[in-house]
């Protein structure tokens, strides 16, 4: 059984680190993202996720450059995504030093993209990012940074993505993202109990205890943004809490 992972998630706009709420209202943080990454690596983070929220508008040069600079001093796996619409886009990110590529909008519009990336680079390279928002009793899969509703349930889409070759699901709750109110545990439970690939829970961590709840609900990894970027807690604090709760971590 693989150890549970604590992942730092960095949303990027051009060369800057940003943080929003409900995938909106982005604010810039002062220091360059590479500097945040170096600090999280020092704190013992297990993985890094970069999401370029404007890549589809401006291209990926800024993100590939950030990834390149990060791999110079950060020796844990790096996932990069944002605006990946083709196998070539994925190749660009992997060549710049990313270990995995996250696809969202591109995969919803052209599901075969998942299969192409997975066949070419292996399922472990292909992370399907799903932005979930609760409407009534079910969660719908959104895209375009949470702006568009695909009209599909998150569970259906997750199952199809895995069948197409996704090696991991990055499951972001739009409702909780940036709120620090804790993860959407029902969502995590529903998806992780049904898919045969690791699920990364994203959106809502405000305290170390929230991570433990997500793991207990079935998450294989948690992605943390706000709490780390604004120093509410460190990677070490989260790990210590989870270890004390009996969760196996690095």
């Amino acid at each position: 059984m693989a150890l549970k992972r604590i992942i730092a998630r960095l949303d990027i706009k051009q060369e800057r680190l940003i943080k929003g709420m409900h995938l909106e209202g982005w604010r810039f943080l002062q220091d360059p993202p590479q500097k945040f990454c170096a600090e999280y690596y020092r704190q013992g983070v297990d993985e890094i996720i970069y999401v370029d929220v404007v890549a589809s508008l401006y291209g990926r040069e800024k993100l590939t450059e950030i990834v390149k600079q990060t791999t110079d001093h950060v020796f844990v796996p790096i996932t990069a995504g944002g605006g990946v619409r083709s196998l070539d886009d994925a190749t660009d990110l992997l060549r710049s030093g990313a270990d995995k590529v996250a696809v969202c909008t591109g995969a919803i519009k052209e599901p075969q993209l998942i299969t192409e990336i997975s066949r070419r680079y292996g399922a472990q390279c292909c992370v399907v990012s799903i932005q979930a928002k609760k409407n009534g009793n079910q969660w719908d899969a959104y895209y375009d940074i949470g702006r568009e509703n695909s009209g599909r349930s998150v569970l259906d889409w997750a199952l199809e993505a895995v069948a197409l070759g996704a090696g991991e699901i990055l499951l972001t709750s739009i409702d909780r993202e940036g709120t620090r109110k804790g993860f959407d545990l029902d969502l995590i439970e529903q998806i992780s109990s049904r898919v045969q690939v690791p699920v990364i829970a994203s959106g809502g961590l405000g305290t170390p205890g929230h991570a433990a709840q997500a793991f207990q609900a079935g998450a294989d990894a948690v992605a943390v943004a706000y709490a780390l970027h604004y120093g509410l807690c460190s990677v070490g604090d989260i790990k210590e809490y989870c270890r004390n709760a009996g969760i196996p971590l690095r």
Binding site: A2, L3, R5, Q124, G167, Q196, V197, P198, D220
Partner: peptide
């Protein structure tokens, strides 16, 4: 018991 493949993550 069913296991998740690929096997991804940190192991002792």
């Amino acid at each position: 018991v069913a296991s998740r493949i690929p096997h991804v993550g940190w192991e002792f």
